[in-house]
Design a protein around this nucleic acid. Structure first.
Lengths: 194, 194
DNA sequence: CCTACCGATCGGTAGG
DNA sequence: CCTACCGATCGGTAGG
């Protein structure tokens, strides 16, 4: 490819290059955490020096927030679609759990590790992350509200337990023995109290 | 106190000073994480410069491993004692969960956050932490093995789900509404399938 | 326990 | 996108 060809479509090239960098950054953040990933690391994977990334992004903080929110947007979309295919409240919950675990447990997943990184991140960043996550978790509030649970179960605690269970699965899951869907089925089986 | 008095009991002073530093370090690690805590931070809380700490410890890595293992030793001890007071398998499990949550959710807890920090830590440190944690979790393997669970429940998954649930509670628990014992009761109620 | 420092690394920028 | 750099901060050490 000639130099002219490289710069001929600067609009397309520019934004696809940006997407490429975002993907690289997401994988590094997911593997090494926020503090464990330097801008120079990201640059190295992208084939440029760290400082050159600032042509595409404003700051490391903004980059992380953007990736985090995009990951949650994507997860929320997929869960929404999966839930719509069922009517029974337990089936809806299991569809949501299964979809979320599919995302969290995918090799090189981005969503899961980022959601558990809150303490590693600067204070101002954390506030933005928490706000976006609260919004995400609203989806589960509805699903849990529709469950025919026995009266003595506190739905707020129940929801927190379920969500933290889903988020923590990435810490112990090693693929091979069970699929994400099977783990989701086990979780829902345990949480099924009528 | 005179200078003579200060140095008169160098043996005692030395080791109690060390314990003091360990406590300060543990609280900082718990609050800010491994990477988020600098030796200078620890020194500042202890009233000395960062470099001066190396009279009492070998390295930041060794300090963290020591604190982590001591916290697990202490937790294992307390759980062991609590479990011994019961015969019924479900009562024993609930005693273990309640004791662990008491430790994890105590304001300024050290155990909980450190157990979830694995990705933040250098590779060689992580290996030591994991080995010690696996040993700790053996305790729960026995407790789960004794439960009269219905045959279709996979005890290995069940144990992982329970443990990750206990470890994740610190992420959403805010004291006031429920005591750690009440949270433990809710968790055991959900996990109770015969 | 301090002074004074080492080499490494960090996020980020100016100027081309 | 690079060169060349900034100021800050890190874990750790020598020598007293």
């Amino acid at each position: 490819m000639t130099k002219a060809a490289q710069s001929s479509c600067s609009n397309d090239e520019g934004s696809s290059r940006r997407r490429q960098i975002l993907e690289i950054a997401a994988q590094l953040f997911a593997r090494k955490g926020y503090r464990g990933t330097s801008m120079r690391d990201i640059g190295e994977q992208a084939g440029v020096l760290g400082g050159s990334l600032y042509h595409h992004i404003k700051s490391k903080d903004a980059l992380f927030v953007e990736l985090h929110n995009a990951a949650l947007d994507n997860a929320a979309d997929q869960i929404h679609q999966a839930v719509q295919r069922h009517d029974d409240p337990w089936a809806r919950l299991e569809a949501a759990c299964s979809t979320l675990l599919d995302i969290q447990l995918a090799p090189g997943s981005l969503t899961a590790p980022m959601m558990n990184d809150f303490r590693e991140v600067p204070d101002e960043v954390r506030a933005q992350l928490i706000a976006r996550r609260d919004q995400f978790e609203e989806l589960f509030r509805t699903l849990v509200a529709d469950l025919p649970l026995s009266a003595h179960i506190d739905r707020s605690i129940y929801r927190n337990l379920l969500l933290s269970q889903l988020n923590a699965t990435g810490d112990w899951y090693r693929d091979g023995r069970l699929t994400p869907a099977q783990v989701a089925a086990q979780i829902v089986a345990i949480f099924r109290h009528e």
